[in-house]
Nucleic acid binder design. Structure first.
Lengths: 341, 341
DNA sequence: TAGGATATCTGTACCGGTTTAGTGAAACGG
DNA sequence: CCGTTTCACTAAACCGGTACAGATATCCTA
């Protein structure tokens, strides 16, 4: 390891092939047109013989492009992050980009992650954020201003912020879930809401209320409790709700739904016979529960993919205007919600 | 964007501070000792005034170190990969390294991923593999020979291969699970095994048999069925097993365990009252099932962390000898296995 | 046959850091 | 008082690519 292996660089290849480095560089970058067939073959052969592979770091320094994008994830209890990675990684790979991943559990580490990735010269940044409504954005706006393409997923931004976003239509999803229960004949429909300092919590609650209103159902405040997206808060919330005898419940989060399911079981009732339940979140997560939970299906893999696509557009054409992409959730009807007896 | 913003480089900082670039470089790299307090302060101030941040790509080119490691994951049905990422990312971040992530669903894409990351000059590579016993390793051995530090998690390697590995003791985990059932008084203990072209499947099956043998129980071949780690294969496997009336079943995978649970329910039996069940895999995944499944707990987050640690050791001291780190699983006793009535 | 086009290829300055070898002045030691 | 160290600092080569601005040779055209 000590002795310098006299690495094979583009200059060595050039010498071996008896051409200039420019010619080798042209060959590597597919500018075959201005090259005779003979030269092309000699370069190819020299590369082959030396087992040469170009150094991306050097290339990046010269071109100022790294073909790498940064994905910063603030996860905290977030079962949604693996599908986002999946979607983003697939889209990157397809476009011949690499993914630099960082976890940013708090505001400070998010700042550090953005800073580090900028120094590493990523071509763009994606932030998949936790849905707090009072999240800090100044570092993102600054980075944007200094020319770093950014896309955010699931994040509140000040009105008119010039940063493209991918958002999931939480309102609509909650509306669909609740309407489904209405259509099954339920009238006393409860809701376990997410925290009110999260826009996901607020939007889903609003969607729930809208569906009730549309159906001409009065909303009983005692039928809404607030959780924190944890299994335990779902369990506790459901225990509280059971006192007020709902016939169905829309739970605004997947872990909470499993908690609610458990609470219902523990009180001797059965889903869906005694009580219908609709969940919200990662559809895989609740698929294998018993009974399989009817759930709002968030297109999370797509969110990751689309975020990458939006970003790549901005990288290619920096002037591309800001844009908000709203992804529509679906409803996966499974076994946990049935018509009111 | 067109006009060149005359970026702030180390040379600009040097000019601004009235010192040489070497001095600025020394300052940046903490070689404060050979610098007068006055100079130090002038450099600090110039950096501050210009808002200078060093370019990591240029640094990497010069030092041949990128402070980045590559994590290549072959996932295919693998619910274990998010915790690995979690552990690896945390260990990286702590050591001031970044994580370059790639998905490699098949052998070809694994080769390409390794190649790409080598060109991007990662300081080392971690492969988290699917457990096929006949996996190709030549590209890893070659990379290793050419000086790229590599660590593999959960991968078979030829005897004596000089590549450090992190392995989970599947045999031991299966043994613990089965012994637990034996100790609860069960005698007809069935097993839903993983595929026999995966060492996880083979090792777990062996651990199961060993525990039976130790307890002096005869192993009835009809009480062992083979699945493919999917929910459906667990469901089908359990249906087959029910014909032979086991009092307990050890299921060698988490998704299969949920499938088995469903099959048991569907046939009108209850867990754990009529049949005890122990699962194996990602403990979170089966925690919220009803009943909460007793399961073998694989230390997957740790596997990611330790892989990074092993790798960083090799990066720091390339001659560090090969080493296999065997991680011991635990048994999480929850509700799905009870004493034989 | 001069003058331009075209095709093919090259020399070298960059990208923005690190690092080696070395300079000049002050401090030290006998 | 002179040679040696130490201290604080610098000039310039280097990492390994890209790309601009030509250089030649060949061909075409008027």
């Amino acid at each position: 390891m000590r002795e310098r292996a006299n690495r094979t660089t583009i200059r060595r290849v050039a010498r071996e092939a008896g051409v200039s480095v420019t010619t080798v560089s042209n060959y590597l970058n597919g500018r075959h047109s201005q090259m005779s067939a003979a030269t092309r073959e000699r370069v190819r052969e020299a590369i082959e013989r030396l087992g040469y592979h170009p150094n991306h770091v050097a290339r990046s320094l010269a071109t100022r492009r790294t073909a790498t994008i940064g994905l910063i994830i603030s996860e905290l209890t977030n079962a949604l992050y693996p599908p986002v990675i999946l979607g983003a990684e697939a889209a990157c790979r397809q476009a011949q980009y690499s993914l630099l991943l960082a976890n940013a559990p708090d505001a400070g580490s998010e700042r550090r992650a953005v800073e580090l990735m900028r120094r590493k010269q990523v071509d763009g940044l994606i932030l998949f954020s936790v849905s707090f409504i009072d999240i800090a954005n100044d570092h993102l706006l600054r980075a944007h201003e200094e020319g770093v393409p950014i896309v955010v997923i699931n994040r509140t931004m000040p009105e008119g912020a010039p940063i493209p976003r991918v958002v999931l239509d939480n309102f609509r999803g909650a509306y669909l879930a609740t309407r489904h229960l209405v259509e099954l004949g339920h009238r006393r429909i409860a809701h376990i809401a997410g925290p009110s300092n999260r826009f996901t919590g607020l939007d889903r609650r609003a969607g729930y209320l809208a569906a009730l209103a549309e159906a001409g159902l009065e909303s009983d405040p005692r039928l809404v409790v607030e959780g924190d997206y944890s299994f335990e808060s779902g369990y506790q919330g459901m225990r509280t709700l059971l006192d007020h005898r709902p016939s169905a419940v829309f739970v605004g989060g997947d872990a909470m739904a499993l908690g609610a399911l458990r609470a219902i079981r523990d009180s001797g009732l059965r889903v869906p016979d005694d009580l219908s339940l609709v969940a919200f979140g990662n559809p895989d997560f609740v698929h294998y529960a018993t009974p399989a939970l009817t759930t709002v299906d968030l297109p999370i893999v797509e969110a990751g993919q689309i975020a990458v696509e939006l970003l790549l557009e901005r990288i290619a054409v920096p002037e591309t205007p800001e844009e908000t992409r709203v992804l529509q959730p679906g409803l996966l009807v499974r076994e946990s919600a049935i018509p009111l007896a």
